[in-house]
Simulated scan of single mutants.
Amino acid sequence: MFGVVLWCDEEDHKAVIWCEDHGDLAFYRSPSEVQSVSMDAGDWVEFDLSMDRNMRFAHNPRLIAEGVFPELPESLETVGNIQVSPAAQAQKHRGSAEIIPFAATLQSGRGQRRTATASRA
């Protein structure tokens, strides 16, 4: 899988990676006996992926390109700080899409003409 490094700690050889499938983040920790690849936030990496207890773990990361997305971690943080209306928060909590009732479409002028035309046919 490919991903972008969002955060890393070179001393502890840890990283958090945003995966190309936009699923859960992948966590990386280099085993102490293995020479770890040098990664920085914004780097594009390829890695093997495993799941354990509903968490994703990256293994054998390979650096594809350095600093390709340097602004991505800050952009995600900025988006995370945007104030969201209570209705939007409730919608997000339910995990469903916004549903626009069919009746709302019929109330527009164009919708009424379509309905009237369709009923004549």
Rank of each mutant, 00 (worst) to 15 (best):
S119N: 10
L6A: 04
G109M: 03
S32K: 05
Q112A: 11
W7F: 08
E77W: 11
F102D: 12
S36P: 14
V45D: 00
I99S: 04
T115R: 07
S108I: 02
S119H: 12
F27R: 06
V84H: 02
A15D: 01
L106F: 10
Y28I: 03
R56F: 00
T105H: 11
E33D: 12
R53E: 12
L76M: 15
I99T: 11
Q91A: 06
D9Y: 07
E66C: 11
A118M: 12
K14S: 06
W7Y: 13
G109S: 08
R29M: 06
D52I: 08
N60Y: 11
R62Q: 15
G95W: 00
R110K: 14
M39N: 01
C8R: 03
G111Q: 04
N54V: 04
V84I: 15
F47P: 00
K14P: 03
F57Q: 05
V45I: 10
V68W: 09
A58V: 05
R110N: 06
A104N: 06
S32Q: 02
M1V: 12
S96R: 15
V34M: 04
L49E: 11
A65N: 13
C19D: 09
V68F: 06
A116E: 12
M39R: 01
F57L: 05
R62I: 13
N81E: 15
S50I: 15
S50C: 08
R29Y: 06
S36T: 02
A58G: 04
S75Q: 14
H59Y: 10
F27P: 03
V5T: 08
E10K: 10
V68N: 08
E74I: 01
C19P: 07
D52S: 14
E33M: 01
Q89K: 15
D52W: 09
E33I: 00
A118Y: 11
F27E: 04
W7K: 13
I82E: 13
S30M: 02
R114I: 12
I82G: 02
I99E: 07
C8H: 01
S38K: 10
L25D: 05
V79M: 14
F47C: 02
V34T: 05
L106M: 14
S75K: 12
Q107P: 01
E66K: 15
S75L: 13
V84Y: 00
P101A: 14
W18R: 10
E20F: 09
V5Q: 06
R120F: 09
